[in-house]
Amino acid sequence: MRLTRFLSKNWLLTYAALYVAFLYAPVILLPLFAFNESTIIAFPLTGFTTKWFTVLFESTALHQAVKNSLIIGVVTAVLSTILGTCAARAMVRFGFPFKRGIVSFIMLPLVLPEIIVAVALLVLLMQLGFPLSIWTVIGGHVLICVPFSVAILSSAFQGLDKNLEEASLDLGETGWGTFRRVIFPLILPGVISSLLITFTISLDEFIIAFFLTGTDVTLPVYIWSQLRFPAKLPSVMALGTILLVLSVLLLVLGEWFRRRSAKQQGLDPASGGGFMQ
């Protein structure tokens, strides 16, 4: 009786708790099966083992996929953050003709289904006779990562005091020197946050990588190929567990940098422009 009274009074809280449980349901299973003795992914659990992690350390195909994904992730993060910095600075500081149109065009990949982006790039590359490699995947990933980078960095630029730049120019710095010595250090936390988030997006991205990867598979494409073999599943779970922990660490780090930058510029760190909004 007390329970029903509690539920009817706090139905919204109850709903929220159930919803969060729904959100976490698949993720909770990941470590459970990663450390489970049995090859079959089902309950009841049979016993504790770390052998699936050992399997991972011995697979050379996996190591190659991880290496490819890391290269793609790092290059994508750097390129899209550079492009994102240019776009965000131009958006926040300057007016130019067709501004709205150009900005929405750069942000367009956010709302375009990934399969369209992937197919479009594939068709163009096929027509140009361009061989598929990790560079074609990077090309696609930069395209979808730039909008995220722009969103993060435009909030960093918005908090920038225009007078600091003008002071630096008045004191005889060149445009590049001002950027390097005044602007860049101030937006650095935003830049780091953008690097981390675009890296994470690239690392997880499957559809574009699936279409544009040649023989050099990425990690998600490797996982996709493993899902067909029931015997490989427990080690895929182990891999997923490692990835989850790494992603969360990277994101916590990214968020920490974003908050630090917001605090430096005297903004409310809980509001505006983070990857969570």
């Binding site: 492009l83 994102g84 131009a90 300057f94 990949p109 395209l143 730039v146 722009v150």
Partner: peptide, 16 residues
């Protein structure tokens, strides 16, 4: 400033 990202989007999105 806007031209590098715009150029990239033109080559990698509009053209495809």
């Amino acid at each position: 400033m806007i031209s590098p990202p715009l150029l990239y989007a033109l080559i990698m999105l509009a053209a495809p």
